[in-house]
Design a protein around this nucleic acid. Structure first.
Lengths: 185, 185
DNA sequence: CCGCTTGGGTCAGTATCATTGACGCATCGG
DNA sequence: CCGATGCGTCAATGATACTGACCCAAGCGG
C-alpha cells in the first residue's frame, strides 16, 4: 500500500539517449521495451479512474465502451458498433441488452432499413458517459498539460501508427465523416 | 484528488515557451475524446500480435506480462512482481505456477532472505519472451519510424503522465536502478 | 411471390483474468 | 520465543471474451 516514492519523482536528469543527432537510436531494443512498459502502465491507469465508477454501478469496461462510442456516434448501427469494438455479437449483446433495459441506451429502427436498430444514448446514458468522461479527462488533461502541445501531437502520431488496418478504418469512420444517417445532435 | 499539478512541472524542462492562449486548444473536449479513441484502438492493436502467439500456446496476456517483467528484471521477487502487475497473489499464482511447471520460469531462494523466491526466465522462457517481443517490436517500430523521433519523445512524455503514483513508482523501479543497494547481485 | 442475403438477437458451453477472505508455512528479526 | 513478513493455496465469484448454431424480420433481385 505505501507508495514510497519518497523523493520528488519529477526530476528529469534521465540518462536520456538521443543526445546528439536524433538518429535511429530510438529504435533500439531497449527503447522498444520501454514502450511496452509505458503502454502497459499508461493504459492501465488511464482506465483505472473510470473503472472505479463502473464498479459501483455493477458495470465493467465493456459498458463504458458502449457508452463512449454510442455517444460519439449517435444513431450508430449495431453492426458498426460491432466493427469498432471488434467483439462478437454475443459479447456485445450481453452488455448492450441490460443497458437498453436499464434505460441507458435506446434502439430505434432505421429509416431506410428497418432491420437496423440504431443506438442512441438516453439522457441517463449521456449523464453516465459524461461522468466517466470527466474522470478520464482529469487524467488525460494532466498528462497533456505536463507534456505540452508538441508532445501531445507526437503522442497522437505514435498511437495512430500502432493501429492496424481494421482499427484505422474504424477510427476514421469515427473521427472523420459527420456521416449520413442524420442525427447529428 | 491532487489539485497540484504545478509543483513538479516547474522542474521539467519545457520544450516550448508555451504562450497560454492558443496552445491550450489541445485540451478541448473533442481533443480529449480523441485521446480516448486513440488509446483504445492503439492499445488493442499493440497487444493483438502477441495475443495470437499466446493463444497457440494456450496462454493469455497475463503470461506474457510475467515473461516480460521477469525478463526485464531477472531475479525479481514475487512481491515486487505483484507490485508491478498490481494484481492479487491468486491471480499471479494461477499464471505463474504452470509457467514454473512447464519450465518457463525458475524460482530460486533469495540469498539474504530465503523466504523469497527469486524469479528468472529459463532458456525456454526467454525464447518465448523473445518471440513475443519480436512481434510487438514490428508494430512499435513501424509506429515509431512513421512518427519520427520527436513524436516518440512526445509519446513517452504523455504516457508517463498518464501513470498514477503507484505505476510511476513501479515504472521507475523497473527502468531505474540496474543494481545498486548491495543486496541484489 | 419466392428464395437468398443481411441485420440483429439468442441459446449453450467454455476459457481467461480478475476479485475477496482465510489459512498454512517457513523464515526473519528483535 | 513471538510477531511480522514472503509466499503459496483453498474456495467461491464475477466480468469479458469466445465458438457454433439457430431464429426472426426485413431487404432485394428475379
Amino acid at each position: 500500500m505505501p507508495a514510497k516514492i519518497s523523493a520528488q519523482s519529477a526530476e528529469v536528469p534521465e540518462r536520456s539517449p538521443l543526445p546528439a543527432g536524433r538518429n535511429l537510436l530510438f529504435l533500439r531494443e531497449e527503447e522498444l521495451r520501454l514502450a511496452q512498459d509505458l503502454l502497459f502502465f499508461g493504459y492501465r491507469d488511464f482506465t483505472a479512474g473510470a473503472d472505479e465508477i463502473l464498479v459501483e454501478l455493477g458495470m465493467g469496461r465493456a459498458h463504458h465502451r458502449v457508452l463512449h462510442f454510442v455517444g460519439r456516434r449517435p444513431g450508430i448501427t449495431v453492426g458498426d458498433l460491432l466493427g469498432i469494438l471488434a467483439i462478437t455479437k454475443q459479447s456485445l449483446g450481453r452488455v448492450l441488452q441490460p443497458m437498453v433495459e436499464d434505460g441507458y441506451v435506446t434502439q430505434t429502427p432505421g429509416r431506410s432499413d428497418r432491420r437496423q436498430r440504431l443506438l442512441t444514448l438516453t439522457e441517463k446514458g449521456a449523464a453516465l458517459e459524461r461522468r466517466l468522461f470527466e474522470r478520464q479527462r482529469e487524467t488525460i488533461m494532466r498528462a497533456y498539460r505536463e507534456a505540452g502541445p508538441v508532445a501531445v501531437e507526437g503522442f497522437r502520431r505514435v498511437m495512430r501508427g500502432l493501429m492496424g488496418e481494421q482499427a484505422t478504418a474504424a477510427f476514421e469512420l469515427l473521427e472523420g465523416p459527420a456521416a449520413e444517417p442524420g442525427t447529428s445532435r
